[in-house]
């Protein structure tokens, strides 16, 4: 879709962050514990995939 994302920059930005830090960066209102745990405990997810899941949640639409 004619977009370029600097994932290296993104990776550097977020590599030392905990999962809770990531939630705080992207979501001002956190989803239910069940949803949080489903992402947090999925060991197959890379950091990039984890971030994508977070910003695809309905809560990302809240300011």
């Amino acid at each position: 879709m004619d977009t370029e994302v600097n994932w290296t920059k993104m990776s550097d930005e977020h590599k030392n962050l905990t999962f809770d830090n990531l939630l705080d960066v992207f979501l001002l209102k956190h989803p239910s514990k069940k949803i949080i745990d489903s992402i947090k405990n999925d060991s197959t997810l890379s950091t990039k995939e984890m971030i994508l899941k977070i910003v695809s949640l309905p809560e990302y639409n809240l300011s």
């Binding site: 004619d2 977009t3 994302v5 695809s56 309905p58 639409n61």
Partner: peptide, 15 residues
């Protein structure tokens, strides 16, 4: 709402 939930992976993966 569906579009908003899809957009991140589309924009960020050039889909």
């Amino acid at each position: 709402l569906l579009l908003r939930m899809k957009l991140p992976s589309v924009i960020l993966n050039n889909g």
